[in-house]
Design a protein around this nucleic acid. Structure first.
Lengths: 210, 210
DNA sequence: ATAGTAAATGACTTATAGTCAGTAAATTAT
DNA sequence: ATAATTTACTGACTATAAGTCATTTACTAT
């Protein structure tokens, strides 16, 4: 059925156009200040149509997050072949992660805004995000296992908890970047310095290197 | 002027009553879902009165955060005398911090919700928060200096950036706790484990211990 | 008592997320 | 080609909640 296919393609295209518009608006004005009417106007559609494709403003934000995750995964995939051990790969991922969110702080901002969201199996946006998340963790843990096999990572450590800790630290660094223009914090802290990879690297060596 | 004093006291009391009510409502329903009308009703005041004392819903949240910071400082002050070196004190502060936000996750949730807020010198709430923040960082850095003097902390490290990194990691751990009930994250990560002090402790030893 | 000041009120305005009955366009059937 | 049907889109409308302000009430001083 050629027509059914074309229709599906067109629908997907529309969906993407809407995400494009939403991304522009949300990134320029910030999530709270952005309005769906503005998104609709930029996408040259009516508000009602936006809600035909996305069930809420949050849902739209989730779709943007999914994009960010996808771009991040591409970055990982392009960087990994240059690494020679599991540990190096893990370092590469962490470094790419931090770099990515420095290059695209708007993605970081939006990603951090959302707490635990309900996973809705009937919702495309929700499922796509879940899928990217699975990809991400699958990669992370397979690289970790690789490191254990090739002897670059200490097999004694508790995988789950140590990855959680490292990952948590990175989250915190992202969060800190956002507070960077705060008058008081900036006087006391050196927020830019946190970005250089030195400390994270030391931490990872200490916690997981063989 | 006894009457002027009493009036000032009563005003401060009212302000506190409003914060009490807001805290109850915000913690039960969450910041977004809570309404000022509900706060007003619980405080047995009209909505207009709330806005006489606080210039916005965000301002109210900031006042609650200030309370959290004050409670935290009390915890620090009670714990510090039991420590015998600057490094131990710093560990104690970090531990208290994490414990506090485990005991009062609502304070953590609200604190993390706010990005960089504008410091408004004409606004009591804003200034009180700024003041608590100053107290906090003053303590943190004085403890660090103490550690350098008594030889428990490596004097070579760059104070500002290393504290920023440790502090950032803690932020991330707080953030991770909030994601704890997320189905996917919970399957891959061990979010509770991050809470035990082991990793942070190792990290601090690695980064700053003499 | 009366004027003057400070505190409190709640109806009103404004803004925006989300809905839905109606319209238009594309597709299929006759 | 035309009608019937399905699919996509529209924008006026509803609901909700933040924030305002003219008016009222309570308190203080003379």
């Amino acid at each position: 059925m050629g027509i059914t296919d074309r229709r599906a393609r067109e629908k997907e295209q529309r969906r993407n156009d809407i995400i494009d518009a939403a991304e522009r608006i949300f990134f320029i004005k910030g999530f709270e200040e952005a309005t769906i009417d503005e998104v609709a106007e930029l996408a040259e559609l009516s508000k009602g149509t936006i809600y035909l494709y996305f069930k809420s403003k949050n849902d739209l934000a989730l779709a943007i997050n999914t994009r960010g995750q996808k771009k991040l995964m591409l970055l990982f995939r392009s960087m990994l072949p240059g690494c020679h051990s599991g540990f190096e790969k893990l370092e590469g991922i962490v470094r790419s992660y931090i770099d990515f969110f420095n290059v695209y702080p708007d993605y970081a901002k939006l990603a951090l805004k959302f707490g635990p969201f309900h996973l809705d199996k009937a919702d495309q946006t929700s499922m796509e995000y879940a899928h990217e998340l699975e990809n991400y963790y699958t990669l992370l843990f397979s690289v970790f296992d690789e490191g254990i096999k090739d002897g670059s990572i200490n097999p004694q450590v508790d995988k789950k908890s140590v990855i959680s800790f490292i990952w948590g630290s990175i989250l915190g660094i992202m969060k800190l970047q956002q507070l960077g223009d705060h008058e008081i914090l900036n006087r006391w802290l050196d927020i830019k310095a946190v970005n250089n990879f030195e400390y994270i690297s030391k931490m990872m060596e200490q916690l997981i290197k063989r």
